[in-house]
Amino acid sequence: MMAYMNPGPHYSVNALALSGPSVDLMHQAVPYPSAPRKQRRERTTFTRSQLEELEALFAKTQYPDVYAREEVALKINLPESRVQVWFKNRRAKCRQQRQQQKQQQQPPGGQAKARPAKRKAGTSPRPSTDVCPDPLGISDSYSPPLPGPSGSPTTAVATVSIWSPASESPLPEAQRAGLVASGPSLTSAPYAMTYAPASAFCSSPSAYGSPSSYFSGLDPYLSPMVPQLGGPALSPLSGPSVGPSLAQSPTSLSGQSYGAYSPVDSLEFKDPTGTWKFTYNPMDPLDYKDQSAWKFQIL
């Protein structure tokens, strides 16, 4: 009977010793046993002879290597770790002494450095960015050149030099007046198309007034536009458009034309069986010896 009264063996659950049927240790109110408190290391007290050895090595170098620390530790009968900690504390003490010396050398008012006064946003004049500046400075420094007289040679050079070769001289006033084509001369031969040399188009003023001019072949195509416009036809070669000034309004060009419109200028042929003959000019830059190549039959 006494065997049943004795408590059973101890069981360990999660490293906790349980005594038989008792489960009081598993209750929430019972805390787990805490780790033992780490003991504080005792402070090391250095003797005068030990301090002399350490100070002598510190005077040589503030960062001794492990071999120098072990050698000193053997002399003063201390572990190497204590020597390492002593050098660490000695360097910190040396830095603190240097900072105190710097503070003593500075004057009393030198510690508080005078800061520059901050400028207020409204006091300083700042350039306004509302208006974009002129990058080319046209509004201040540029002045347009004065327009020359209508009959000045410089204007003629600016007008005619675009179309004339570089080897030719500017046309005088008398020749510029001949550039304007007359109405009857352009409409006299509506079906004849003559190819003149390129030099005649640039230099010869008579080429624009003769039936064999460069633009005589364009007349049949330009004249039928007159009834559609409801007024006189516009002429690209009329009046002052080739003269001194090219800047004319469309209203000033509306009254200039080749001449009176005639039914002869239409595109319809009077004789459907007729042929169109292209007159060959020996001055043509295209060297075609066979003139029969310039004739064709309209079917």
Rank of each mutant, 00 (worst) to 15 (best):
P79K: 03
F201E: 00
V85I: 08
S22Y: 14
I76Q: 12
Q228K: 11
A200M: 12
P36Y: 09
P197Q: 03
E55D: 08
S213A: 12
K38C: 11
Q291K: 13
V30Q: 02
P108S: 09
P197F: 11
D65P: 08
T279A: 01
Q62I: 10
D290S: 13
K120I: 02
G230K: 07
V264G: 06
R126Q: 05
G8Y: 14
N89P: 13
S212E: 02
S257A: 09
P107L: 07
P7D: 00
G259I: 15
D130P: 02
A200L: 13
S128V: 06
V23G: 03
F269N: 00
P79V: 08
S188Y: 13
L179S: 01
Y191M: 06
K60F: 08
M5E: 00
K93R: 07
Q84F: 12
A3G: 00
P263G: 09
Y11S: 00
D140G: 02
Q28R: 13
D219Y: 14
T129W: 03
E173A: 11
V180C: 03
A293N: 05
N6S: 09
L78F: 13
S210R: 12
Y67W: 09
Q99H: 09
P165R: 06
Y280L: 13
A56F: 06
R126A: 07
A174N: 05
Y221S: 02
S12M: 13
S139R: 06
T47N: 01
P170K: 06
R48H: 09
V23L: 06
S223T: 07
N14C: 15
V157M: 04
K38A: 12
A260N: 03
Y288C: 07
K60C: 05
T251W: 12
S49Q: 09
L186E: 01
K120A: 01
T279V: 07
S249G: 05
Q297I: 11
L51H: 13
V30P: 04
N89K: 14
F278A: 00
S185Q: 07
D271I: 13
G110S: 05
D284T: 12
S152K: 13
Q100T: 05
R176W: 12
L25W: 10
P282F: 14
T45R: 09
Y258C: 05
M225A: 02
S254I: 12
K93S: 11
Q39M: 10
S245P: 02
P64H: 14
A156W: 13
T159M: 10
P205F: 12
P263K: 13
L57H: 12
K118I: 01
S206C: 10
I138S: 07
P220D: 03
T129E: 03
P227H: 10
P227A: 11
I298Q: 00
P127K: 12
Q50A: 10
G122I: 12
F58R: 13
L54S: 15
T44C: 13
V66Y: 02
P184G: 08
K295D: 00
P272Y: 08
R90G: 13
L16M: 04
V180Q: 05
G243W: 12
S210Q: 04
K270M: 10
M283T: 03
A198T: 06
P108A: 04
A114P: 07
P236N: 06
A56M: 04
P170T: 07
T47Q: 02
Q291E: 00
V83P: 14
G20Y: 12
L179M: 01
V23K: 05
Q105N: 03
E55F: 02
C94T: 09
K295T: 15
K277T: 11
E173W: 15
S249K: 08
V72G: 13
A35I: 08
E52T: 02
A192N: 01
A3N: 00
S124C: 06
E71V: 08
F215Q: 00
S241M: 10
G148M: 05
G110R: 08
Y32D: 03
A17L: 15
M193I: 14
S213C: 07
R91F: 14
P285E: 03
K60L: 12
V226W: 13
D24Q: 15
P211R: 11
R82N: 11
F296Q: 00
T44E: 13
A247Q: 07
M26Q: 01
Q106Y: 09
G209D: 03
S34E: 03
D265H: 13
V83W: 13
Y191G: 00
P144H: 10
Q256K: 12
S19N: 04
G255N: 05
L267R: 02
T155Y: 15
S206F: 12
L18I: 06
P133H: 06
S235R: 11
S167D: 04
M225N: 01
L18W: 07
C202I: 12
S262D: 04
G274C: 06
P211M: 07
P135R: 09
S241F: 14
Q84P: 11
K295F: 14
V131I: 05
S49P: 08
L237Q: 03
L25G: 00
A29L: 14
S167A: 08
Q101W: 03
M5N: 02
P240Y: 13
G8Q: 02
S254E: 02
P31R: 09
V30M: 02
F58H: 11
V242Y: 10
L253K: 10
L237Y: 02
G8H: 05
T44Q: 09
P107R: 12
G151N: 05
W294M: 00
M26C: 06
Q106N: 08
E173V: 14
Y11G: 00
F269Y: 01
N6V: 14
R119D: 00
P149H: 11
S164H: 04
S167Q: 03
